[in-house]
Design a protein around this nucleic acid. Sequence first.
RNA 1: GCCGCUAUCGUCUAGGGGACUAGGACGCCGGAUUCUCAGUCCGGAAACCCGGGUUCGAAUCCCGGUAGCGGUGCCA
Length: 464
Amino acid sequence: MSSDPSAQVRVRFAPSPTGALHIGGARTALYNWLFARGRGGVLILRIEDTDRQRSTPENVEQILDALRWLELDWDEGPVSQYELADRHREALERLLDSGAAYRDPATGDDVAAWKEEHGNRGYRGQASDDANAAVRLHVADDGDTVVADEIRGEVRFPNEAQDDFVIARADGSVLYNFAVAVDDSDMGITHVIRGDDHLSNTPKQLLVMEALDVAPPRYAHLALLHGPDGKKLSKRHGAASVQELRDTGYLPAAVRNYLALLGWGTQDDTTILSTEELVERFDLSGVTRSSAIFDEQKLRWLNGRYMREMDLDGYTEAVARYRGREPDERLRAACAIAQEKAQTLAEVWPLIGFLFDEPQTDEKAWRKVMKDGALPLLTEALEALRGTSSFEPEELETALGRILAEHDVKPGKLYQPIRVAITGTSVSPGIFESLAVLGKERSVERIERAVERLSTEAADGNRS
RNA sequence: GCCGCUAUCGUCUAGGGGACUAGGACGCCGGAUUCUCAGUCCGGAAACCCGGGUUCGAAUCCCGGUAGCGGUGCCA
C-alpha cells in the first residue's frame, strides 16, 4: 500500500515543456527534490509531452537547463510521457474490456446540451460501438471521490458533479489525466507534490486508478505563486523564469533558499537556511495553504547575504562565470574590495570595471564633484601619491590624510574628486582600496588627466 | 452556471481557544557609523476580510457572506 512507511519515497517532477521554467515550476521541483533528498528517496523527472505541438526539444532542454542551474538533480529520467504510449494504450484496452470505460461519439455541444437538460450534473453518456468515438470513463452517480491531501486535508468531490470524462481520443491516444494516473502508478510514485491547479484533476486521476485497480499515491497540492499585482505569474512580472533569475545575477543557493520560503516555513520562522538545512527541515506539514506573491526585493536581500558570505575564491569564480571571463588574480583583487557592496552578480562589474577598462566619465558626477578647491587638492594628492613607496591602502590613507589635515577640509572634498578621476563615477569601493588595486601608475595617470581637464576648464571659466 | 481551494502588517510568514499590548523577516521611515555607494547597528510606523454563532474568553472552532484563485476541453 502507498501508506507503507517502510516503502522508499518516490516522487516526480512532471513539467510540460511549454517554454521557460517559471519560478512556480521551479518551486515545485525544489519541494520534490527537498522531499526526496531528505528521505533518501528517488526523484523522477518526467516530461509531460503528450501534446506534440507544444513539446519541442528546445523547450525540454530549457527545463533541464533551468534545473541544472538550480543544482536540482534527478535520479531517473527524463522520461518522455509520449514514449509511454504503449503502456497507456494497454491500460485503456483493459478499461474498455472491463466496461469501466466506453466509446461515446458525443461532441462538446452534445455534452453541453445534455447538461442543460439534466441541470448541471456530471455528464453521463451512452456506450457506442462507433470505433471513431472518444473514450470516456464511467463515473458513479453517488458517493464522493476524496483526495486525502497532505496539505489541505480531505477534499471531497461529489461524483454526481463529475463528468464521464474523456480519457482517450478516437485514435487511441490518451489524455493527460489518464496518462498521469497510469504513469504515477507504473512508476511507483509514493507522493505527488504539485501545483494547486491539479487539485481538481486529482479525483479524475483517482477514478482512473480505481478503475485500473491500483493503489493511489499520496497527494500534496501547493498553492500557486502570483505576481506583485496578485495575478497569476507571467512574463510581464520581471524575473519570473529561472533563466531570468540567472541573468539578473542571483545565486542558485539564494534562489533555493528564497523559493523554499515561498509557501513553506518553519515554526521558529528562520529565514536563512542553507540547502543542507532545507533538506533536513523541509516537510509537507510546514507548507502554507494560501498562495504567495513573488517579491523580488526579498530575493535581492537574501542574495546579497549569500554573496557576502561566500569565500573569495568562490565569489571570484561566480563573478567570472557571470561575466564570461577567467578568474585571474586581478579579478580576485577586484572582488575582494567589492564583495561587501553588491547584492547581485550584475551589480559587481559597475563597481570594479574601472580596474579593467578605461573608465567612461559620468559627466553629472564630474560636475558635482569637480568644483571649488578640487583642482589644488587633486594637484597635491598627485604629488603625495607620486611620493608613496608601497601604495598599500594604509600608506595611501596616511598620505592623503595629511593633506586633509593641512587644509582642514572634509574627507569628501578630496576623496570624491579622486574617485571620479580614477573610476569615472561617484560610486566605488573604498577609495584607498580602489587606488591600491588600480596601482600607482594608472592611478597617477588618471588623476593627471583629471587635473589637466580641470585646469583647462578653469582657464575657460576665467575667460568667459 | 457547477465543483473545489484560499483569506494575519505593502510582501513572505509565526501563531491553531487564555502565554497577543498579535512575534520575526523583506521593504519603508528616522538615527548611528561616515570617503561615495553598499553593509552593519539602534529605533519607528504598519495586519487578524466582513457578519453572525459557540464559549467565561475567538486571530484561533462553526455557519453565512465577500473577495481572490483553480478546475470545469477529444489541453497539459
